[in-house]
Design a protein around this nucleic acid. Sequence first.
DNA 1: CTGAAAGCGCTAACAC
DNA 2: GTGTTAGCGCTTTCAG
Lengths: 337, 337
Amino acid sequence: MKVTIKDVAKAAGVSIATVSRVINHLGGYSEETKNQVLQVIDELGYQPNQVARGLVSNRTRTIAFIVPDLTSTLALELLKGVEKGAHKKGNSVILCNTESEGIKTMDYLKLLHEKRIDGIIFASNELKKDYYEYIQKMHIPLVLLATQSPRFAVPFVKVDDRLAAYAAVEYLMKKGHRKIGIISAGEDDGIAGLPRLEGYQLALSDYGIPVSENRIVRTKGFHFEDGRIGLRRLIQQDSEITAVFAGSDDIAAGIISSSHELGIRVPEDLSIIGYDNLKIAEMIVPPLTTVAQPLAEMGEKACDMIIDMLENGKLAQSLYFPHKIIERKSVKTLFSS
Amino acid sequence: MKVTIKDVAKAAGVSIATVSRVINHLGGYSEETKNQVLQVIDELGYQPNQVARGLVSNRTRTIAFIVPDLTSTLALELLKGVEKGAHKKGNSVILCNTESEGIKTMDYLKLLHEKRIDGIIFASNELKKDYYEYIQKMHIPLVLLATQSPRFAVPFVKVDDRLAAYAAVEYLMKKGHRKIGIISAGEDDGIAGLPRLEGYQLALSDYGIPVSENRIVRTKGFHFEDGRIGLRRLIQQDSEITAVFAGSDDIAAGIISSSHELGIRVPEDLSIIGYDNLKIAEMIVPPLTTVAQPLAEMGEKACDMIIDMLENGKLAQSLYFPHKIIERKSVKTLFSS
DNA sequence: CTGAAAGCGCTAACAC
DNA sequence: GTGTTAGCGCTTTCAG
């Protein structure tokens, strides 16, 4: 029933070593025996047992993808890229949804360790000290995806948030906007919130516009609800605003949803630029102008890096991916410059 | 460096058999040795090697989740549930994104076979004969999620699409609508399209309303674009329509997007009911009234079923999950009945 | 209650 | 070119 290398060897009239050689393309056998073996493999429908292989080779051809929040389309895009990168080279990916809970993450790490997975891609979340240290002990490659660590020297793949935020705000200004607000997670989120806020402030300063606290709304996260609530807070603080930079597309969607309720027209009364270019950006009305991150590509690259590190044994080079502004219909041109 | 069962045995002054017994809670050892072993395990930071375990026990504690299209939020919700169900019992899930290509699916199946995964959850796609036969040969449990097979006796978890579609259309009628269209994949998609179309037709008939081909638009898939194009076709075929049943939330979003361009107000001029209750349903304007499928729960259940089958060795019972209509703001009440 | 030993299916020296 | 054999780390009889 279950056919093993032994069965193949016996049926082909050779030793298991020879079979092993041909399935691993190692050479050291005649063309004739090779064909013989191959034929038997085919007849018997033999599939090498990767578990047994893993036991001796210490390679499971499995990569773990750890995300805090599988709900977000952002994670999905990332995951898609990772999966593609993995499968391209005969690896598979194990999914770990940690739901932001620290305990669950350590839990997962243990499980992954027991499974002797080959590497870890840690996505869009803070790499806590505990995690880092535990992973170090596992002696497997780790790369950070859409996040980075201020403390540990771990290779990462991401876009430069500060730069991208700067570009978004600059775009608004080029369209003639001067009274620009921001609704985004702020300093509390050092990974994504802080740099986006900094980019916003820097862009304003560079254009000689004073930064006013009244135009800043710091949200808890990057979710739809944050945007909904955020807009109400923002117009309360400063009703003169003509444009808003949203820290994420979800926030932007929330802002748009809220504006409808408040009778604010987008983009006629209020222009909005988002961040992420998720699928929802094109599905809402008006279609959202936003800063695109090449998420799928980034995921794929992260995977390549893991495999690279596995093969070469040295740390991969961190990488910034370029952002891009996708123009749709949520920003009104006041005047062009 | 790498600590194995031998190291533990040596350090604890017992045999590896004893260590194995305590880590597997098999009993047959004194309280004293147990504590001794446990302590050493802790000190050494020993983690059993699941690969080695898998080799002898033929259990890898890994379940594969196969979906054709990871892009959709639907897949995401399903996946979330599956992941939860798996992790709950110390299993992990390997993700397979087949992108609808048959070759890639067989490819994956081979890979999964080599990895000796414990079971397969096959989601929202047609189970082709090739796949089925191959999986049969693997001798591992298989369950269909959000899909079913008209040909093979494979346990499934899904909602009854026909019933749910019926309910959606009936809802529209209870709100006073009589001229109701449908934009959805049709007979070509036997799994989801056909039953939804049937539900639509049946509901109409039951209320004594003739089914008109002019009110039916059959789309290629269930995507946003299908909805956008679909609406234009529909109003061309019949401009009198007051409500539309969309085969998916994505289609519904497309319809709404299209209506804006066409100057049709939702729900004032046109009511829309969607299907799936994805996250986008609450994020668009107006928030979408839709038929909810408990996707995450379904995913979790599918996982439970796999594990069940693994433990009991017999086929699980197929399960229909209940649908539910989520009322939001995309349907106008003409008159209540 | 505990240990010795035979594998699980495969790879990788090491012989011939 | 090809076969023999010693493990990889663990579970599981079988003795004692």
